[in-house]
Simulated scan of single mutants.
Amino acid sequence: AQWNNGWDYRNDGVDIEESQDPRGYPYNVGWIEDNEWLRYTVDISDSGKYNVDLRVASAVGGGECRLYLNNQPLGNIINISNTGGWQNWQTVNGPDLQLPAGTHQIIISFPKGGFNLNQMAFAAESTEINHHNGPYPRDYELKQNYPNPFNAGTKIQYYIPVEDEVRLTVYDTTGREVWVLVNKKQPAGDHSIIFQDSRLSSGVYICFLKTDRYQQSRKMVLMK
């Protein structure tokens, strides 16, 4: 019987199909309808603030999703627009979330369907506001990631002297955008984020920091 509309990966009631997302996993959840949901068990190593990004595709738009931690709502509803096709994938930045350490249940619910979901990624973020006592403020800086080379994950640190729109991205050597780590306004100060993606193969990747006033890149080496 057709229980999985995509007939792919497994047949347990979740509609799964092969994905054409070059930055995503080989399968995606599809045929999402109103009021459906998915539940995951997650292990959060450290309490703190996390960024969440979704890889979505839609030919109709108007979709909505919302996250829950242990049945308690996390942030606001995330709106999903028309991306131009069911396999035309875009990254949607969700709300910043304060998550506690430990093993928890995370539910992603879909008040309104009409889109496909390839992945949901969480990245820890830390921010320290440092007061500079010298005659001139520190300049913008993207530090070298550490460790580098790296295997499982690496820490990316940067400093912005004033509140600014920040976009922090990772590219491969062909210029293909691999991941958007940060895409929002941030306060002045030191910032850091952990980057890890088990799908990537060994090689050189470029971390690129861009603001309204500054841009800088660093090479990162992934060794598996």
Rank of each mutant, 00 (worst) to 15 (best):
G6H: 00
A57C: 01
T83W: 04
Q72K: 12
I78S: 01
P26G: 10
Y25G: 09
D96G: 02
F122C: 10
Y158W: 15
D8Q: 15
Q98F: 05
P26D: 13
V182Y: 07
T103R: 15
E141G: 02
T103E: 12
K112V: 08
E163Y: 09
P95N: 13
G48Y: 11
L222C: 05
N51C: 02
F122N: 01
N5C: 05
L99M: 12
N148M: 06
E177S: 08
W37I: 00
W7D: 15
D164Q: 12
E64Y: 03
N70I: 01
N183R: 13
D21E: 10
T91R: 13
D34C: 06
F122R: 04
G30I: 12
N70V: 02
T83H: 03
P73F: 04
P187S: 14
N148Q: 05
V42L: 09
N71V: 00
V60A: 11
I129Y: 06
E36S: 14
E17N: 11
I108W: 07
A124G: 12
D8T: 00
L38Y: 04
D43N: 15
H104Y: 13
P161Y: 09
S109Q: 12
V60G: 04
Q157E: 15
T211Y: 04
E141A: 13
R138H: 08
Y159K: 05
L69F: 05
F122V: 00
I78Y: 01
N82F: 08
D96S: 14
I156W: 07
S126F: 11
G102S: 09
T83D: 03
I32F: 07
L142T: 02
N79A: 00
P147S: 07
Q119N: 13
I206A: 07
T103I: 15
E165I: 03
I193F: 01
